[in-house]
């Protein structure tokens, strides 16, 4: 995505390219990923109050990411739904209508593990995103990893299915699928 922004002059024939003024930071890239995940996810009907209800992205423990994500989803819609981005400091604050929840692993990975069940309980429809392979094994639905300096992700399909969230195969193709046992597919 960095290249995307870096390149300037666009052909007349290629109309209205995505505008980008400055190099994309790792934060912005992560925020963009969070937004893009929503495109390939499908929540149960019960997750929304009505057909116009926004997709709510919650960011726990990372205000900067929350701000970047809010900026990313500004004036964007997916399947006719607009976005709400909420930043949480504590897991007790997490609201039940959150659809995608990013859990910052923080400095102590153990703390994060402890937060995960609480968050799942607080927001039962949320697609849980975190960092590191470990988090996926512990119950996160998707985890970012850095491989060869490229931001990639692992998906625990089992867990997501259990949360009644459908993940598009297009997304699955790009991800490394892992199950609770840590096996990869």
């Amino acid at each position: 995505m960095m290249r995307l922004v870096a390149l300037a002059a666009l052909s007349v024939s290629l109309l209205a390219p995505m505008a980008a003024e400055e190099p994309v930071s790792a934060l912005q890239l992560k925020a963009a990923f969070l937004y893009k995940f929503t495109i390939f996810l499908e929540w149960p009907e019960a997750a929304f109050a009505d057909s116009k209800s926004p997709i709510v992205i919650g960011v726990l423990g990372d205000k900067e990411l929350a701000a970047a994500t809010a900026e990313t989803v500004l004036r964007r819609e997916v399947r006719g739904r607009s976005f709400q981005v909420r930043s949480y400091m504590w897991e007790e604050d997490i609201e039940p209508d959150v659809h995608l929840l990013y859990l910052s692993p923080g400095a102590d990975h153990g703390e994060f593990i402890g937060r995960l069940p609480k968050a799942r309980a607080k927001a039962p429809h949320a697609f849980l995103v975190s960092d590191g392979e470990e988090s996926v094994l512990r119950g996160a639905h998707l985890a970012f990893t850095l491989r060869n300096d490229r931001l990639q992700f692992l998906i625990n399909l089992e867990a997501a299915t259990a949360a009644n969230i459908r993940i598009s195969s297009k997304l699955l193709r790009l991800a490394t699928i892992v199950d609770a046992m840590g096996e990869r597919r």
Binding site: F40, K170, L171, R173, L174
Partner: peptide, 19 residues
């Protein structure tokens, strides 16, 4: 396009080529 859109979105050229 629909097959490669995800790869394009997530900048995964390898996967796009595979598709």
């Amino acid at each position: 396009s629909s097959q490669v859109e995800a790869a394009l979105l997530f900048d995964d050229a390898r996967e796009a080529n595979k598709i």
